[in-house]
Design a protein around this nucleic acid. Structure first.
Lengths: 258, 258
DNA sequence: ATTCGTAAGGTTGTCAGGCAACTTTGTTCT
DNA sequence: AGAACAAAGTTGCCTGACAACCTTACGAAT
């Protein structure tokens, strides 16, 4: 039954540069092989010994490489049986985030704008009535929270989340959740900018309202435009926030030895 | 200088249930210790041998545990020096994706369009001369690969990667790399659609050329438009690919032994 | 013929020891 | 004091081995 895997040829180039990071190289190649379809979902891949022979490394390296893929959720290993490609492969986007650096927040905002503008465009077209209701409710929640003296940041996140969900595309919601997790701090900074708090909140409410109207009307282009404006303004508001709430250190050679 | 770590007592309970997943248990405990502040950012943790003694395991288990933490971005290991707690925490976006399902590929393409359109817009404005050269080279590489009978998928990925890089925003490059990892298979499917291979490639080349021209000219809106067209067309080409190259099954219990 | 048990082989998890490459520290020489 | 050198420490990688577990095949009993 396992014979088909044994005849699996050396699946192309398994050259490893002898220098360093042997395991990482191997993991990368294996990952590519899996994503490239060389090993289908559920399929058993060669044993650790065989992999070691194919790549010309010892079993230690193979094990560490497999360990990486395992932790990435790409494969599942079972003692006595073998390592199998996961049936629902997962991929991870790992971001290093000095999440107090001003520049990194700006860059993250740019990515957020890219994703949420498109999300809004799709949401305007695809939103179901109940999804539209959820968006509307989320907006009300923001007002409520602000009136109660809260920053409303959480509710703001929920608002954007509801829009992403209305796009009816799993990846958009996952991405938006991911980004916002880290923008939360930055936005909180903006909201606690007491000097301009009221005018800021007025702007935010108006911009949100415009987005909601566009999505309600089913006007995709308008929705996209409104979100773009909203996030551009958000960036502007962030730039006007007190700078000392961020770490200025772009790179910190002492704490980050190469 | 390292004396403070050596005097580090057995930092609480390092009991491991002897049964299974020894490395995972150890990684969990170490992770807890780090998050709990036992090991501060930048601090060196005990050597692998010492850890093995403390936890009563062999160095193999220690190395696998550290490998996990390393891949989680929690620590950084340097040969000859030791393993150190990372100072910049990382976060991960993890997507489960039935990567052969047609619908999921379409959805992923939508997200890709969102990101890469904006990336192209930024690239048109921010690209340095050398980055522009890299994009141009990547395009040439595609032609070359195709002429040599290859699918050119890898080179295509490199092309889009170079554009993302020219946006000069870390998060864009990371995201594009992330998405493309999974679209590689799908695009390979399209490219191996022999029936329409030539006409497809002609289209692709023309679309790439248009993108390059817009970025070269520094025309942000045109660049965005061209990428949007390119990816919309890519989706169209994908839809015309033989359907039997995908798994229709949303979940496949036979190939997924629990 | 089918079912069950058992033995054999294969595979991952863990252990043990060792060497090479590299880094850090300490010492000696100028 | 500064530079060159020696020594010890640490991770990356290799080799070999055994235990726990799974899979398969074969034979015996029903």
């Amino acid at each position: 039954m396992y014979s088909d895997t044994t005849r699996a040829v050396t699946h192309s180039a398994n050259q490893l540069k002898p220098g360093l990071d042997l395991a990482r190289q191997m993991a990368q190649q294996l990952s590519q092989a899996i994503h490239g379809g060389v090993f289908g979902p559920g399929q058993r891949l060669p044993t650790e010994v065989v992999l070691g022979q194919q790549y010309g490394t010892s079993r230690s390296v193979v094990r560490e490489a497999l360990s990486m893929l395992r932790q990435s959720g790409l494969i599942i290993s079972r003692r006595g049986s073998g390592s199998f490609v996961a049936n629902t492969p997962t991929a991870e986007l790992r971001l290093k985030l000095p999440h107090r650096s001003f520049q990194s927040v700006i860059e993250l905002l740019e990515l957020r704008r890219a994703v949420e503008v498109e999300a809004a465009r799709l949401a305007a077209i695809r939103r179901t009535p109940s999804q539209l209701r959820r968006i509307r409710n989320a907006m009300v929640d923001i007002d409520e929270a602000v009136e109660n003296g809260a920053t409303g940041v959480e509710q703001d996140m929920a608002f954007h989340h509801s829009i992403a969900k209305a796009a009816n595309n799993t990846y958009f919601t996952a991405s938006v959740n991911f980004y916002n997790q880290f923008l939360q701090h930055a936005i909180t900074v903006t909201r606690t900018n007491e000097a301009q708090r009221l005018t800021f909140m007025e702007q935010v409410v108006a911009e949100h309202q415009a987005i909601l109207n566009a999505i309600t009307a089913g006007d995709a282009e308008a929705a996209a435009r409104c979100v773009a404006i909203h996030l551009t303004q958000a960036e502007k508001r962030l730039r006007e926030a007190p700078a000392d709430l961020f770490d200025q250190t772009e790179d910190n050679p002492t704490s980050a030895p190469n």
